[in-house]
Design a protein around this nucleic acid. Structure first.
Length: 324
DNA sequence: AAATATTCCAACCGCCCGGTC
DNA sequence: TGACCGGGCGGTTGGAATATT
């Protein structure tokens, strides 16, 4: 692993360390301490630069280094510290005995960062991502879950359970909507103020359940051909056998798009939906705001919904406190 | 079974900062 | 005061290992 063996312009070796080199470095430092890193290689009989020796020692050879998988506690600690410290890996490492900054940095980049993105959280701000599209699969899935629950032939014994489940689904659905909306409102880069957001939200009540989002309902939103990109079989479904929601994951979207014809700006549109190619958050916030505007001029005036409007949800103090 | 893609992580790179002269 | 040096730091690279097609 790492780099191929090579040497720099001074003839100093680069690349992976051999066990012989490790042994030389360790025995020298154990006897004399590292002292001046620049002088160390010559004194220890190593054909390496001092910097390389220092990195090898601090990241790998130091006796108190803990190796292996990160525990749940360590993971939580890193997440919490990253919220406060950002990419200050050495500062974070000080709170994790035995872990090096390099190891923490790698763990962040390979695991935690991706994990947060999958959860719809911006890894840099630790806030929910400020776009509707990131939350769209979850929103659609929750809407469909609700419909699924309502359509089931429940008997008297399960009616109570149905009601509770439906309430839970409603609550979760509204919470997701609220999160998305609040993120946009909180974004310093978005152009829509809370007032205009409320206005927009009132006008997109048609998205409230129990109406199920179909590809045709999504067609044309914000000039983005979602219907073409999310084919019917990628729409969220409820897995009856294991009780899981198939949200029509980003991977599904990506796969389905390979079979779609490439329309104008299709690659640009596609990038909107990719989990791992995140567009700038500012763009997404503006796009979301544009979508609201587009919807408000083109859809469902006067459609009544048994559910509270988004603005009603937003203005509900009790709910706000609960979700705060 | 082979080809291809993705993940992982040790090691390197280059910038920056503080200490010394 | 500015040049130099040592060391620390975050970001990036690239190849082995592993997973997927």
């Amino acid at each position: 692993m790492g780099r191929p063996p090579s040497s720099d312009e001074n003839g100093l070796k680069k690349g992976p360390w051999t066990s012989e080199e490790d042994e030389k470095l360790m025995s020298y430092i154990q006897k004399h301490g590292h002292g001046s890193w620049r002088a160390l290689p010559q004194l220890a009989g190593l054909n390496r630069c001092g910097k390389s020796c220092r990195l090898r020692w601090t990241n790998y050879l130091k006796p108190d280094i803990k190796r292996g998988k990160f525990s749940q506690e360590e993971e939580q600690t890193i997440l919490q510290l990253h919220t406060v410290l950002g990419n200050k890996w050495s500062a974070i490492a000080k709170h994790l005995p035995g872990r090096t900054d390099n190891e923490i940095k790698n763990f962040w980049n390979t695991h935690l960062r991706k994990k947060l993105i999958k959860m719809g959280i911006d890894p840099m701000t630790h806030r929910p991502r400020t776009d509707f599209f990131a939350a769209l699969p979850q929103l659609i899935a929750l809407a469909n879950l609700r419909q699924f629950i309502n359509q089931q032939p429940w008997d008297d014994h399960t009616a109570g359970l149905q009601e509770q489940t439906a309430q839970a689904a409603n609550l979760q659905y509204m919470q997701s909507l609220l999160h998305s909306a609040a993120s946009i409102a909180a974004s310093p880069t978005t152009t829509s103020s809370l007032n205009s957001l409320n206005m927009d939200l009132e006008q997109i009540n048609f998205l409230s359940p129990p109406q199920i989002l179909s590809p045709s309902a999504l067609e044309g939103i914000g000039g983005i051909d979602l219907a073409g990109q999310m084919s019917q079989n990628q729409m969220p479904t409820f897995d009856h056998t294991i009780g899981n929601i198939n949200t029509g994951s980003h991977n599904n979207i990506e796969t389905s798009e390979r079979h779609c014809s490439e329309g104008e700006n299709s690659s640009q549109k596609r990038s909107f939906l990719y989990e791992n190619s995140l567009p700038p958050l500012t763009d997404m916030a503006i796009a979301a705001s544009n979508i609201c505007a587009t919807i408000s001029t083109s859809n469902c005036n006067g459609v009544s919904s048994p559910f509270p409007s988004w603005s009603e949800i937003l203005l509900d103090e009790e709910l706000l406190n609960e979700f705060a």
